[in-house]
């Protein structure tokens, strides 16, 4: 299982109703259905991923996140998950608000653009970072809204979103002492559990 999903799966209580935005091949929902009696839906637009979800018996809906979540009732899910998709949507702030409207809690993971390797790449080459982990160049990347952990937490403060949990991990999903002390410098992927201002 992908690093961040492996951690998320433990953050979701058994029996929850989950909406997974950008659910990929459905591996998280498939695991949760099989092991934690979780019910819910995945949203996806990639054809191959949709097929894999169907094969796995995961409820998958072909729906573009950029068109909003208007078809989901407020507070109709226990948890709304969005893993590695925040940086690819047109309006991260709006989708975050929508997630908090639809779900009681949200779990969000995204790559940290403040990681030392990104900073070093930009400082040394004067060009947008390209790596094994983020292999795209600036003009063809689906990732149009990169942010750092600091940026994200700043948005949370602006939207009065409460951060319940956060974890900075590297690609091997290790979260050692370094990424705990200096997450914005040493963490590659951020995993946040947040809730709306009303709770």
């Amino acid at each position: 299982m992908r690093a961040d999903l492996d951690i998320i799966k433990d953050w979701i209580p058994a029996g929850s109703r989950v909406l997974d935005l950008g659910c990929g091949n459905g591996e998280l929902l498939a695991y949760l259905q099989a092991n934690k009696q979780v019910t819910g839906y995945g949203l996806e637009i990639n054809d191959e991923n949709i097929k894999q979800c169907i094969r796995r018996g995961v409820n998958v809906l072909e729906q573009d996140l950029d068109k909003g979540l208007g078809n989901f009732a407020s507070n109709s899910f226990d948890i709304v998950v969005m893993s590695q998709a925040l940086q690819a949507v047109h309006y991260p702030d709006r989708i975050l608000e929508e997630m908090l409207r639809v779900g009681r809690e949200c779990i969000i993971t995204f790559p940290n653009f403040g990681h030392w390797r990104c900073r070093w790449y930009l400082a040394r080459n004067g060009r947008m970072p390209v790596s094994e982990f983020l292999p795209y160049t600036w003009y063809n990347t689906p990732n149009i809204h990169f942010c750092t952990f600091e940026d994200f937490e700043c948005l949370c403060r602006e939207l009065k979103v409460k951060v319940l949990d956060r974890l900075a991990v590297d690609r091997q999903h290790r979260h050692g002492i370094g990424s705990r002390l200096w997450p914005n410098l040493l963490g590659e992927i951020g995993i946040y559990r947040v809730t709306g201002p009303s709770l």
Binding site: R17, T39, I54, V58, N59, V60, L61, E62, N71, S76
Partner: peptide, 19 residues
């Protein structure tokens, strides 16, 4: 079709949708 899908979601049914 999405009207059907949305109703099924609201009714908490298992549903997959492709366009």
């Amino acid at each position: 079709s999405r009207e059907i899908v949305d109703a099924l979601i609201a009714a908490k049914k298992n549903v997959s949708y492709l366009d």
